[in-house]
Design a protein around this nucleic acid. Structure first.
Length: 180
DNA sequence: ACTGGGTAAACAG
DNA sequence: CTGTTTACCCAGT
């Protein structure tokens, strides 16, 4: 895995690139959190990691990722994306992550709505699990998925980040709940 | 506001 | 294969 630090107004994110693209994005201070708590977020196939690879477009990927992250943190949809390496996910998880990317900034969906768009209206709970396993938060906007009850649901990076990201996009949680 | 039953998927053993 | 654990949902109190 190839690490890049991305400075933003909200802190330094860490982006990990495999030979196939962006594989993981960590919030600032996710390091300390992952040391203390037994956060088993990454699909970390520490065994299958290639020793020394240097993807041809790595620097371009890093620049594109930094720009995309900057846009996302300003509440805009990125104009360009790096390739995403989702090889660690199951088929179901990848379907959920694809669906996540079709939710525009400023909008939210419930876990049940997302499940319905996948043609599995009863899989709300499983969708929650897949969101929690999303290795690329912010860019793959799992923060736009909330509980149907009006609650926030959960967030792998901590609920404070979820609230923050939604606030940046202008989502008023109280109003979003009412409109439902 | 709270509860219980239903549910899909991942995971440990 | 069975049992356990979820970032859930909904119809009942």
């Amino acid at each position: 895995m190839n690490l890049a630090r991305i400075q933003t107004p909200l802190g330094t994110f860490r982006a990990y690139f495999s030979a196939h693209g962006l594989a993981r994005l960590e919030f600032p201070s996710a390091r300390a959190a992952s040391r203390n708590k037994t956060r088993r977020l990454p699909p970390s196939n520490s065994k299958t990691q290639a020793p020394d690879f240097q993807p041809a477009g790595l620097h371009v990927w890093q620049a594109v990722t930094a720009k995309a992250l900057g846009a996302a943190l300003s509440g805009h949809a990125p104009k360009a994306w790096p390739p995403l390496d989702w090889s660690g996910g199951t088929d179901f998880q990848r379907r959920v992550w694809v669906a996540l990317r079709r939710i525009p900034p400023g909008q939210t969906r419930t876990y049940a709505q997302l499940a319905a768009t996948l043609g599995q209206p009863r899989a709300a709970r499983a969708v929650g699990g897949a969101c929690g396993a999303n290795p690329i938060p912010v860019l793959v906007p799992c923060h736009r998925v909330t509980a149907a009850s009006g609650g926030l649901g959960g967030f792998s990076g901590g609920l404070a980040w979820k609230r923050r990201l939604l606030a940046i996009e202008g989502v008023n949680l109280r109003r979003a709940r009412k409109l439902r």
